[in-house]
Simulated assay, not measured.
Amino acid sequence: MPQGNRRHIAPEQKRLITTMANYMSPREIATATHISKRTVYRTIATWRSTGKHAKVPLELGRPRILTPFDISFLEGLVLRTPDIYLVELQTHLYMSTGLYVAQTTIRDALRRRGYTRKRVRVFFSNSARL
Rank of each mutant, 00 (worst) to 15 (best):
M1W: 00
M1C: 00
Q3K: 02
Q3V: 07
Q3C: 00
Q3E: 07
G4V: 03
G4W: 01
R7N: 09
R7H: 12
R7K: 11
H8A: 10
I9A: 03
I9K: 00
I9T: 09
A10P: 10
Q13A: 10
Q13R: 11
Q13T: 10
R15Q: 06
R15I: 02
R15T: 02
T18R: 06
T18P: 04
T19G: 11
T19W: 08
T19R: 07
Y23L: 11
R27A: 03
E28K: 00
E28H: 01
I29W: 04
I29K: 02
A30L: 00
A30M: 03
A30D: 13
A30I: 00
A32Q: 07
A32M: 01
T33Q: 07
H34S: 08
H34V: 01
H34D: 10
I35Y: 04
K37V: 02
T39Q: 04
T39N: 05
V40S: 01
I44S: 00
I44G: 01
A45I: 02
T46A: 01
T46V: 00
R48V: 02
T50H: 07
T50E: 11
G51V: 02
K52L: 11
A54V: 10
P57W: 15
P57T: 12
E59H: 12
L60P: 06
L60D: 12
G61L: 08
G61H: 09
G61Q: 12
R62L: 07
P63D: 05
P63G: 01
R64F: 08
R64W: 08
I65A: 13
L66R: 03
L66A: 04
T67N: 05
T67C: 01
P68A: 08
F69L: 05
D70N: 08
D70S: 09
I71F: 10
I71G: 08
S72F: 07
F73E: 12
L74V: 06
L74F: 00
L74S: 03
E75Y: 06
E75N: 05
G76W: 04
L77A: 13
V78H: 11
V78K: 12
V78S: 06
L79P: 04
L79W: 15
L79Y: 15
T81L: 11
T81Q: 14
P82H: 03
D83I: 05
D83Q: 11
Y85R: 11
Y85W: 09
V87P: 04
L89F: 01
Q90Y: 03
Q90D: 03
T91R: 15
H92K: 09
Y94I: 02
Y94M: 10
Y94A: 08
S96M: 14
T97A: 09
G98A: 04
L99M: 04
V101Q: 07
A102I: 00
Q103M: 14
T104C: 05
T105R: 06
I106K: 03
R107G: 12
R107L: 12
D108N: 14
D108E: 14
A109N: 14
A109P: 13
L110Q: 14
L110Y: 13
R111E: 15
R113K: 09
Y115F: 15
Y115V: 13
Y115W: 15
T116A: 13
T116C: 09
T116Y: 11
R117T: 15
R117S: 14
K118L: 06
R119K: 14
R119A: 11
V120A: 14
V120R: 15
R121S: 12
F123P: 04
F124S: 15
F124G: 14
N126D: 15
S127I: 01
S127A: 09
R129Q: 12
L130Y: 12
